[in-house]
Design a protein around this nucleic acid. Structure first.
Lengths: 138, 138
DNA sequence: CCCCATTTGTCCGTATGTATC
DNA sequence: CGATACATACGGACAAATGGG
């Protein structure tokens, strides 16, 4: 099936493209680790300017759906095997986006939140793409 | 103290500006709900093009630090009073970024992750900016 | 090792639409 | 209504990283 962009739609073209690519990824047309078409290719294929294409990819990055490497391309983010963390009693859990510094120190890409697990006055931070929290089982 | 942009630095100017604004927010120079200078003003003040300023604001949005309203400006995101959710036993907790559709239905802005709490085969989604998860206390 | 084509990153400019005030 | 402000979208240019030869 061929999906096209409608420049006269109320939906911005960059969101249309983001939706098209997101659906294609979810449908398995691009598997984990697979490379998406280049920005230039997407510009030609959908008859869009580079801004629209880049904005669409930015949307997918901030959703954690793809990872972009300079000089190489954009790739579907494969889900890594998560570490299971057992939550102790009296633990408080929040989640937020890391700052750029935290992303570097934790080694996580864009669009990946972090868990903050606080027990007493001790807080630990976990990358949410590699962590599953579990409560104790009955 | 006056902080300036160094166009000859290896650090991209838009990241320099993002860092300057982030530090200013954390230092309390812009309180919760307060409006940042307009994009045009930032362009003049730091002698940058519009892209650089917009990219810097995009960084802060995806970190959940600010909220931008069309026609009005960008505002420091105030932390809302969180709802405390008690985690049951045998619960699994993950966190990820919502898609654009999920953001609309949950009423959350950019840069806000969601909790996914799964018990058995039932999954519930909570906005992470208004939710704190707690394990049972001993 | 260098060369080169490809690809993304950064930065600028302009224009138009739309929402807020 | 006008002025301000952000959103979208096009274009060009050069820098920097990658990967193949």
């Amino acid at each position: 099936m061929i999906v096209t962009i409608d420049p006269s739609s109320f939906e911005p073209v960059y969101l249309q493209l983001a939706r098209i690519l997101r659906d294609a990824i979810e449908a398995g047309e691009f598997g984990p680790g697979e490379k998406l078409p280049s920005e230039t290719r997407l510009c030609q294929q959908y008859e869009l300017g580079r801004d629209a294409v880049r904005d669409a990819l930015q949307v997918l990055r901030s959703e954690g759906a793809i990872v972009t490497v300079k000089g190489a391309g954009s790739f579907v983010r494969g889900q890594s095997a998560p570490e299971v963390v057992r939550l102790p009693e009296n633990a408080r859990v929040t989640s937020r986006m890391p700052t750029a510094d935290e992303r570097r120190s934790l080694g996580v890409g864009e669009g990946v939140p972090v868990f903050v697990v606080t027990v007493g006055e001790t807080a630990r931070v976990y990358p949410a793409d590699r962590t599953v929290l579990e409560t104790s089982g009955g």
